[in-house]
């Protein structure tokens, strides 16, 4: 599938934002971060900013963004609509929480819980959008939504470490949570990749043209010499070799490097060290997520490719 920058930006930024929102709300609730306005601002404002930026990016994916409000109407059937509704719904407790926390130095438990839950639900909806798409076998697997959730949670945790360091809140518990979160997330991702690699094709070209068993089927005359939207949208291919390399980079940058920096931050103590190592971990993770998300699209193959020369998808 075509790796659209708008979608990569949206899913990574909003994912991290919701992750941070959830982690920070729960951390506040659990008393791991204080109810001080500064602390509230340090976690919630970046979270909301990331969510906002993600939503803004998603606008660029819509050809008719001026009608975006219509996307709230089909929550009974459409995960995209549900995502929109959940995102909007999450804003409410998130803003209430931010208001009380930043302005009044209070953490209303209900708002915190609801914001965290909203964040989880929103990211789950995002995952489901992809997970339900049968024509794209790599996405249509049970781990897709867990991976979205886990990566969002892990990125939220890493960002929380950074936010804590910035406002001088002790970040050790957060860092201690972030390390396993990262491990789980990338572990799931690894499993997701492997599952995608190993899965038997869901469809083959001979079946796609209704001539099951008459393989091989080779495209000799494409319908149009000049391609077109459908070909651009689904025709992206990344060489296996490059993909493997990129996966290794993503794993290193998303798991190894952040964990090392988090450990460094934990060991060195001191606010500056915590902040720098947190920043380094977050930036490395951001790079990893960008690569991961790019691969998410670029490696996914749509069944429509069966009519454009692929033997199996």
């Amino acid at each position: 599938m075509h790796p659209a920058p708008s979608l990569i930006a949206f899913t990574t930024l909003a994912g991290a934002g919701y992750g941070l929102l959830a982690v920070w709300s729960l951390a506040g609730l659990a008393g791991l971060v204080p109810a001080a306005p500064r602390a509230g601002a340090a976690g919630l404002l970046p979270a909301l900013a990331l969510i906002g930026a993600g939503l803004l990016a998603s606008r660029f994916h819509l050809a008719r963004p001026e009608r975006a409000l219509l996307a709230f109407t089909q929550w009974r059937t459409s995960w995209l609509s549900r995502e929109a509704v959940a995102a909007a719904a999450t804003f409410l407790p998130a803003l209430v929480l931010a208001g009380f926390w930043i302005l009044a130095g209070r953490i209303p438990p209900a708002a915190a819980l609801l914001a965290a839950a909203g964040a989880v639900v929103t990211v789950a909806c995002t995952g489901q959008i992809y997970a339900v798409l049968r024509p794209i076998p790599r996405w249509h697997q049970p781990l897709t939504t867990p991976v979205f959730l886990a990566l969002a949670g892990a990125s939220g945790a890493v960002l929380a470490v950074l936010a804590a360091a910035l406002v001088g809140v002790p970040g050790e518990p957060l860092a201690l949570a972030a390390v396993p979160a990262l491990a789980v997330a990338w572990g799931l991702k690894l499993a997701w990749w492997q599952r995608g690699d190993r899965a038997a094709p869901v469809a083959t070209a001979d079946r796609a043209i209704g001539l099951a068993g008459r393989a091989p089927v080779r495209l000799v005359e494409p319908p149009h010499s000049s391609g077109g939207w459908l070909v651009d949208e689904t025709g992206y291919r990344v060489a296996r070799r490059h993909a493997a390399k990129l996966r290794r980079i993503a794993l290193a940058a998303g798991l190894v490097v952040p964990v090392l920096f988090l450990a460094l931050g934990l060991l060195s103590g001191g606010r500056l060290a915590a902040a720098t190592s947190g920043l380094a971990a977050a930036m490395s993770l951001a790079l990893a997520l960008a690569i991961e998300r790019w691969l998410f699209f670029a490696e996914a193959r749509h069944t429509v490719r069966l009519w454009y020369g692929e033997a199996a998808v």
């Binding site: 599938m1 994916h61 819509l62 996307a71 459908l230 689904t234 749509h302 429509v304």
Partner: peptide
Amino acid sequence: IGCSLCAWACPYG
């Protein structure tokens, strides 16, 4: 709104 999701959901292009 031109979100393209339905095109992704259609196996037949």
